[in-house]
Computed example of a mutant assay.
Amino acid sequence: MNIEFMHGVTLWDFISLFWFIAAWMGYTAWADSFNQKRTSLMSVMYEYRLQWMRESLHREVRVADAALLSTLIRSISLFASTAIFIIGGTVAMFGGLEQIRDLTAELTYVAKASKVMWEIKLLTLALVFIYAFFKFAWALRQFNYMLIVMGAFPAPDRAETPEALAIAERAARVNALAVQTFNRGMRAYYFGMAALAWFIHPWIFVGATLLVVLVIYRREFKSKTLLTLDPRSDYEAVFKS
């Protein structure tokens, strides 16, 4: 039984939207908590970032470091630009909502929804990618701050001093924070794909949200990439499995 409220908004739509928000926020809070007992791609990669910054202290000319950072910044800029296009496309759909509803009315696998419900779904999708854009923009700013910190690195002959090691650690931490922010933007893309399932049926929306959580969890905590990068694991066994 599906209870319908005002303007065709149903109980299952409320439940699926609540599950979507709870799953997204809950997973983000759990995955991004810095628990030393939990090995993740973020925790393992931080050691590589720290080593990168320490090695950079010894280089007279940091052309390779600049190239690496340039690649990272370009990839984030691409996702930020794409988010803007998606937001624009979603907003444009409000103008042709009646035509979209007419096109989907004859599709048997798409649940019938009122105009208000369509507007709520489109607004939810737009908000997801607005969130993603702000995360990507903040990640870019954090990488810019990291560049400034690297610019303050001392000369190579002072690379082993406590001051030099401390500033290298700060640069690595800013790098890690920037990547964490970027990861949150990427998660918004994943959950945005799940939100598309809401246009088909609320229960498919629930299932798609659960699938996204499982996929992200496996990639961040159980992937072969993590086992290969983790110095404590037997990476040779990864390729034999």
Rank of each mutant, 00 (worst) to 15 (best):
W24T: 10
L211W: 02
T28C: 01
D13C: 00
F191T: 00
H201M: 02
V116C: 01
L69Y: 10
L226T: 03
Y145I: 11
E163F: 08
A80I: 06
E163V: 13
I21C: 10
G192H: 02
M193F: 11
A194N: 05
N35S: 08
K121A: 05
L226N: 01
I76G: 00
E220N: 09
M150A: 08
I87V: 15
M42E: 15
R54T: 00
E163T: 14
I167P: 04
W30L: 11
F129N: 01
D102A: 14
A113C: 08
F143W: 13
R101Q: 15
I87H: 08
M25Y: 02
T82Y: 01
G151C: 14
A29E: 10
M186G: 00
S77G: 12
E119Y: 04
G185I: 10
R62N: 01
I87K: 04
Y217I: 04
A137L: 11
I200F: 09
S43R: 15
G192I: 02
W12L: 05
E4Q: 15
A92W: 05
M42S: 15
D102R: 13
W203C: 09
Y189P: 04
Y217Q: 05
D230V: 13
L227S: 08
Y109W: 14
M1W: 13
M117N: 03
A195E: 02
R219A: 04
V128A: 05
A237T: 06
A92S: 09
D234N: 12
Y48P: 10
V44W: 11
T228C: 12
A113V: 08
A22Y: 07
F205W: 00
L140C: 09
G88L: 07
K240N: 08
A111S: 13
E169S: 12
R158S: 13
G192F: 08
R101F: 03
D230H: 13
S56H: 09
I76W: 01
W118N: 12
Y145V: 11
K115W: 00
S75V: 06
A166V: 06
L78T: 12
A83M: 06
N35K: 12
A111N: 11
I167K: 04
E119W: 09
I87P: 02
S114M: 05
L122Y: 09
N35C: 01
K224N: 15
I3R: 12
V128W: 06
A67L: 14
V206D: 07
L147A: 11
S233P: 00
A178L: 14
D32P: 06
T104K: 03
P231M: 09
S77Q: 13
H201K: 03
T10C: 14
A66N: 07
